[in-house]
Simulated scan of single mutants.
Amino acid sequence: MTKPTAEPGPVLPEPLSAAEVEQKLNGLWAWISAHSVEIAIAAGVGTAIYLALAFLQRHARIYAERQDDRLSVAAIVARTLSKTKQYFLIMVSARLVVGFSEAPAGIVQVVSFLFTVASVFQVAIWAREIILGMIERRATVSDDAGSETLANAMSLIRLLVTVVLFAIASIMVLDNLGVNVTGLIAGLGIGGIAIGLAAQGIFSDLFAALSIIFDKPFKRGETIGFDTTTATVEKIGLKSARLRSVTGEEIIISNTNLLSKQIINYTRLNRRRTRYMIGLVYQTPPDRARLVPAMLREIVEQGSGVFVRCGFVGFGASSIDFELDFDVMSSDFEVVFEARHRIGLSILERFNAEGLEFAYPTQTSFTAAPDGRFVLPYPEGGYSLAAEDHR
């Protein structure tokens, strides 16, 4: 049975001897002596390129600082370019002129490698600024609570975006160095899955908070309804939202749980509809009942409401029923409540003045003698139970 052979490790280069070091230095000096003019020109051109790029970087920073709307696309691009690092400008300049001076292969390799490293990390910085800028732009809100929530969330988002982008950049650099990054990528993937499972509740509420910021189903100060609860939003946090119910209690509910419900936003209504069910006694004359819709229209319009409809809807157990719909042209619940109060009392006052009686549950009992004839009270005509039995 053969034993498995161990995989060979990376072969380290042997250290240079003194003679080899001296030989390389002599070769470098010979290159400098033979191409001094080209090197000087390359250095001058590289310096000019660096100064031009630095000027553009400074101009982008000034432009970004002078923008009134810091979340416009132009401001985000300018702010991104202003984050360009000096080492990247230096390596861009060196990479552009290194071939002009006919540099040795070793120097070209070093410059190319450093340029690759600088470019990878600079692109990661640019990508981070663009991503964060577009997130802020998409989540722009006008209320302080939304801005506070976004500010709290952005610190965590910045950390997550930075870790992800620079991890990718580091893997790319290691791959350029010839390191086998397959195991590293697998390890990072497994670690990410483990962290995600352990903190799925936290991330779920965080993403729910971001959904509220981005989609804006409601904002601070707006009145919403969910399940059987009606409350005013006081604060939107990273994990939970705080609301004040109409009866005064503070309601704390997780963002995930809140978004999983059907939410009614009452504040964004430009009008609110109210419906009154009005029952009149059966003794109401039909000609008087026909006047009820016009009478209610007049009451609603005098009470600053918008009449929608009114009419007879059915025969109740103890009443003839009318239905009244009207709108109050306001999104403020207090204004709507006051209008409903005013119109309701006006209906009561007008019906009393017109002699229209509101119905309430009633039951009439008739008493019969042993022979089947009614005794007082009894209906007119001397109705008899016995006569009913013989029909």
Rank of each mutant, 00 (worst) to 15 (best):
M1P: 14
E14H: 13
P15W: 02
L16C: 10
W29R: 14
I32K: 05
I32T: 06
I41L: 09
G46V: 01
A48T: 04
L53R: 02
A54F: 07
A60R: 05
Y63K: 15
A75L: 04
A78Q: 03
T84M: 04
Y87A: 04
F88R: 02
S93I: 09
L96F: 07
V97H: 01
V110T: 05
R128V: 07
E129D: 14
E129R: 14
E136C: 11
E136L: 15
R138G: 10
T140G: 12
D144H: 09
S147A: 14
E148R: 14
N176C: 03
L184T: 12
G189F: 11
G191R: 03
Q200A: 13
L210W: 02
F218I: 04
F218P: 06
R220M: 11
F226M: 00
I236Q: 03
S240C: 03
V246T: 15
I252R: 04
I253G: 00
N255I: 01
R268I: 01
N270A: 12
R273M: 07
M277H: 08
L280I: 10
Q283K: 14
Q283I: 07
L291F: 11
V306W: 12
R309E: 14
R309V: 10
E323C: 12
F337K: 15
L345P: 02
A353L: 10
A359F: 00
P377Q: 03
